[in-house]
């Protein structure tokens, strides 16, 4: 190992969802500033295994900031101190030699802890199943260029669609609200002509599922936007609220 940073980690350890859990302190030595935060955890785990101890469980996969699987709450902030960056893209050069770093899982009752730093985010999948789609079966499509879509609309829909579903917005929110996540999907389709047919039904169904999952309410503090690694805008929430009110007033339930 070729690093010169020595750090103290305080890591949340919890055997399973029923365990109470507690912080454990681990000194880590010879960390290179070029390492990613997760590679630092690889080093810690390698050592724990060699010492016959249980390694820290954490979720991660692509390690290039796009799959949305990594999820650490670092020094009180989801994905750590930098803006617009997931934990896997956070590098140790963002810390100083001698730092103490506190690492917790996402905290939200809708995201129960599975083990240590890994949580269950399947509530997000269920919200998508409730309406986060355009109902078009394979084979029904017309030519892709048959509907011109203004570039600005396409770009805005794309910006909303870049949400990686990591759940940082929920973790950042004092109410554990999922409004940013839900509104990003609602907005992507609301901005496109293809999404109009189901626009009202979609927002009603997705919000109903969001509430059923036990996420908190939105009080417009904006912590979600500030901590979102993909810069999803708060204006999506405003758009969703408008759509929701409009849909409630006009949709006739059979």
């Amino acid at each position: 190992m070729s690093g010169n940073m020595n750090l103290t980690l305080k890591v949340w350890r919890q055997k399973n969802k029923d365990d109470r859990g507690k912080f454990e302190t681990y000194p880590v030595q010879h960390i290179s500033p070029d390492m990613s935060f997760l590679e630092m955890f690889d080093v810690l785990n390698e050592r724990l295994i060699n010492e016959g101890k249980d390694p820290v469980a954490f979720d991660h996969d692509c390690r290039e900031g796009i799959c949305g699987m990594c999820s650490m709450f670092i020094n009180g902030r989801p994905h750590g101190p930098l803006q617009g960056v997931t934990t896997c893209q956070l590098h140790m050069r963002s810390f100083k030699n001698g730092d103490t770093i506190v690492v917790e899982p996402w905290r939200a009752s809708a995201f129960p802890v599975i083990k240590d730093l890994a949580v269950d985010r399947s509530a997000f999948d269920r919200i998508i199943s409730a309406g986060g789609f355009i109902s078009v079966n394979t084979g029904n499509a017309q030519d892709a260029n048959s509907i011109p879509i203004p570039k600005d609309d396409a770009d805005a829909a794309f910006a909303a669609a870049t949400c990686i579903g990591c759940g940082a917005c929920v973790a950042a929110c004092k109410n554990a609200s999922a409004m940013l996540f839900v509104s990003a999907k609602v907005s992507q389709f609301a901005l496109l002509p293809q999404g109009q047919a189901e626009r009202q039904e979609r927002v009603l169904n997705m919000v109903a599922q969001m509430d059923a999952e036990g996420f908190g309410s939105c009080t417009n503090t904006g912590a979600c936007e500030a901590e979102c690694p993909k810069g999803i805008s708060l204006s999506n929430i405003a758009r969703m609220n408008r759509d929701y009110i409009g849909a409630q007033l006009s949709v006739q339930k059979a």
């Binding site: 078009v136 499509a141 879509i149 396409a154 829909a157 669609a161 496109l192």
Partner: peptide
Amino acid sequence: ANIIDQCVAQGVPFAREYGGML
């Protein structure tokens, strides 16, 4: 070619030119 049609119908926001075409 069918793949692009299918994806656009699903709301995949591909890059577009100013005229609205892909």
